[in-house]
Computed example of a mutant assay.
Amino acid sequence: MKAIGFKTSLSIEEKDSFIEFETTKPIPGAHDLLVKIDAISVNPVDFKIRQSSAKDTVLETPKIIGWDAVGIVQAVGEKVTLFEVGDLVYYAGDITKQGSNAEFQIIDERIVGRKPKTLSAEESAVIPLTALTAWEILFDRIRVNADKDKGKSILIIGGAGGVGSIAIQLAKKIAGLTVIATASRPETIDWCKQQGADFVVNHKDLVKSVREAGFENVDFILDFVDTNAYWDTMVELIKPQGHIASITGSAEPLVLNKLKSKSVSFSWELMYTRSMYQTEDMVEQHNILNIVADLLDDGILKTTLKETYHGLTAENLKKAHQLLESGKTIGKIAIKF
């Protein structure tokens, strides 16, 4: 099968930052599906792993990355019960295994959902990683309750990105929250409003912008940009007994003691935790993806696709990575095979 990978971590402008090669089609294990991929999308995790996973070394076999795919089930493992050959599926993958930048991929059925019926392959491919991340951070980490928390305020830092785009929709349309999203350019402000944000504030002076929007403090904060850079700002803006959650990691230790006087909770979210540790509730990602597919098919949620490239080529992956690395991406990028 055709695949695209890399043997060493190079700048995306370098000729061999991605290479096309032929490799053996994988064989599914007991709980695996073999999926013939039709479309993928690209996320910031892709370029971060490309930049860091083969530094100062040359791999013998190219590393295949990519997390987000849509395709058709070609074969199933002996213990598979959730899918059959011929099913159309979508998923975000497992960071510990080979990725989706290939013609075929094996994937554990417990982290796979049915493809939305009303969306194209590329419209569906941009959903899984960001929807799972946004769903888990809202409903598993913060544990937002649509009845108890309806009308409460949530600040989403990084509203126009892939995760921010779907988080705005889930927070507004499913959780019933009052959504404040950050953006600074006219096109990103407009995008956040299209996703359903009630207020769009400027992240360059966030405390001032939030308060000018009429909020002294907010109930919940989601950080999709930089935990360290926004830590003191989030500490100031969060309400007593509020909850902050982040996906971005921390280059420097966080001073959690700053949350103590307000009795504020803090959570990390990593979408790969369930698959990485084979948690007892790993199948929840299957359930979440099916719920999201229903919401998309019912028109309650909408795809966050912004741009599509055509063809599984090294050049298309380079273009997608360059755009993501620029930090100016709006919504999501898909590649249709």
Rank of each mutant, 00 (worst) to 15 (best):
L296M: 13
D223V: 09
A30R: 11
E20V: 15
V218S: 08
V73M: 06
I111F: 03
L324R: 06
K204A: 12
W67G: 11
S263T: 15
L170N: 00
E136S: 09
A69I: 12
D297Q: 06
I157L: 04
G159E: 00
N43L: 09
D226W: 07
K204M: 12
A181Q: 00
I166H: 00
P44M: 05
Q278S: 14
D297Y: 04
A320H: 04
F6C: 10
W191P: 06
R110S: 05
I174N: 03
S120R: 06
K260R: 15
L170F: 00
K262V: 14
K79G: 01
V200F: 01
G159S: 00
Q278G: 13
G99S: 14
W268H: 05
I65F: 15
K150R: 09
Q105E: 10
L323N: 08
A181H: 00
T96D: 04
A175I: 00
G151N: 02
I330H: 06
I168S: 01
T273R: 12
V218C: 07
I238D: 04
V225G: 00
G151K: 02
N287S: 14
A69R: 10
S153A: 07
G77C: 08
W135M: 09
K152P: 05
P44D: 09
A167C: 04
K306Y: 14
I107N: 06
A320L: 05
K117A: 09
T279G: 07
K172W: 01
G214S: 02
P44F: 07
V225Q: 01
T273H: 13
K173A: 01
V200N: 01
K148C: 10
H321F: 13
K172N: 03
F83L: 14
F224S: 05
A293S: 14
A213Q: 02
V70L: 11
V73C: 09
W67I: 13
S265D: 14
Q322C: 12
G299D: 07
V70Q: 08
E14G: 11
T279C: 09
I288G: 03
A121V: 07
G151P: 01
Q98H: 12
D56R: 04
I37R: 10
L206I: 11
I111D: 02
V255E: 15
F18K: 04
V201W: 02
V179C: 02
K302P: 15
K318G: 11
I154Y: 00
N228I: 03
T304W: 02
D294E: 15
I168M: 01
K63E: 15
E187H: 11
S275E: 05
E136K: 10
G113Y: 04
K79S: 05
A245Q: 01
H31E: 09
K319V: 05
Q194W: 02
A102M: 13
P186G: 03
I64C: 14
E123R: 07
T248A: 06
L10P: 00
G176Q: 03
E109P: 00
E78C: 06
L119K: 02
M276Q: 11
V255A: 13
